[in-house]
């Protein structure tokens, strides 16, 4: 079990949180995603170490930008 935090810019509402969660959940190994819209912090729980580039790609697929991994 591993937990990582990332900072995502551009999120302002529940829809934003939902889109980012939906895409990160598709990354292999991810078991849970928690989003704090106000701070932009996304906490990802996984059953293996994640490649930050996979998370970045998922965030960009949702339309947002990963500013800190």
């Amino acid at each position: 079990m591993s937990q990582s935090t990332y900072t995502v810019s551009g999120m302002v509402c529940g829809h934003c949180a939902g889109f980012v969660t939906e895409e990160i959940e598709r990354v292999a190994g991810v078991t849970a995603v928690a989003v704090d819209v106000e701070s932009g912090v996304v906490t990802v729980t996984s059953d293996r170490d994640l490649d930050a580039e996979d998370v970045r790609a998922a965030v960009e697929e949702a339309g947002y930008e990963l500013v800190r991994a």
Binding site: S9, M11, V12, C16, V37, E38, G63, Y64
Partner: peptide, 22 residues
């Protein structure tokens, strides 16, 4: 302030990219 979330000019600008896409 939207549902308790504070948005300034920089945050609003950052939000435009995802709105455009989605």
């Amino acid at each position: 302030i939207a549902d308790g979330v504070r948005i300034d000019r920089d945050k609003l600008i950052a939000h435009i990219r995802p709105v455009r896409k989605n």
